[in-house]
Nucleic acid binder design. Structure first.
Lengths: 188, 188
DNA sequence: GCAGAATTGTTAGTCACTAACGTCACGCGT
DNA sequence: ACGCGTGACGTTAGTGACTAACAATTCTGC
């Protein structure tokens, strides 16, 4: 049951992504997208609070934080975060359609544009804060929780940008590789 | 020998920071800053390419990458990065004046503003890329180098935001704490 | 003091985004 | 099937960041 709102939103989104990919993000004004979608620029902004949201929005679940919270308290904060993200990813990868072409297309657009990279990082901050809160609730002190969460999101974000820049790199491999890079290896 | 350019730049900077701190970043238009500094808005933009540069610019040296590169090749990439940043920081802290009040003031303004946080992260990306390149030159594969660099900058950035939000937290302590959070501890 | 160079000002314009308010069409109940 | 209320959409007018082109000013070396 697709409502009218969803249809309009999707139409705007597809046209915008096509134009951005073809002509470049900065070269395409919002009015152009609105025109080609047969709507006014106001309608565009009602569906996407800002131009960049078209390309940056995907609900990278605060569900990640739940998986972090679920890790055994005996582990170091970094290790809890690592494993939480890995588990969350495998859960997400199951219900596929996340690794679909639209995501890759968006990552491709974002990866080449510093301002959009920053916007994407900004959008990940809610996840980062959720992870930090999960760790801090587990008794980790605030500075360490914040630093670990920042590191995890930083590594993850870098990996996703690589995916956008490298058509041959799979998202699953990238995420797994990023988390492996933070693996301390066997502890003494 | 302070040139005219430097004087004008400094005047704009001081007035802008004062206004931002007093009334909020979004509430102060560029024209207002220009007026109070006795210049036109064009002069503002000639000294600061964008409004946010006033608050986000400080040359957090690509010197960091040199210290990373200088770490022994036997260590893991993460460990090389950790130690490189720690050494770079101690070197920077020596020639003081980095930890001065202006930096804290700017961090305070940035920390409360999501868009500015993103801009600051964006400005750290040149350092991140330099670190990634340093690691990749040392034989680390690209994904791991990129992920580690992202993690380091992510942790560092989070720590700096905490400094901005917490007047009692010292910058040195924050940086040290952030790096400690990524310490794998004694390896087996 | 004067020529040339660097710095700044003026003006006019583009684009992202917002507020207020009017209008129309969709889909719901009857 | 048909009206009617609500939500989706349009229009207009405006603000603020930022740029280009060119004119005017101040500064500096000689």
């Amino acid at each position: 049951m697709t409502t009218r709102t969803e249809r309009t939103r999707l139409r705007i989104l597809e046209i915008a992504l096509r134009l951005f990919a073809a002509e470049g993000y900065d070269a395409v004004p919002v009015t152009r997208i609105a025109d080609e979608a047969g709507v006014s620029h106001m309608t565009f902004f009602r569906h996407f609070p800002s131009k960049s949201d078209v390309v940056v929005t995907d609900p990278y679940d605060p569900l990640i934080a739940e998986f972090v919270r679920a890790q055994p308290a005996g582990l170091s904060p970094l290790e809890r975060g690592r494993r939480g993200i890995l588990e969350a990813w495998s859960r997400i990868a199951d219900q596929s359609d996340v690794a679909d072409d639209s995501v890759r297309l968006r990552l491709g657009i974002v990866a080449t544009h510093p301002g959009l990279r920053a916007r994407m990082w900004e959008s990940q901050q809610v996840t980062q804060q959720a992870i930090a809160a999960a760790l801090a609730d587990g008794g980790t002190d605030v500075l360490e929780a914040e630093a670990v969460a920042g590191a995890l999101i930083g590594a993850l974000t870098s990996a996703l940008f690589l995916v956008g820049a490298h058509p041959t790199l799979g998202m699953g491999d990238a995420v797994a590789g990023a988390m492996r890079a933070l693996d301390p290896g066997p502890q003494s």
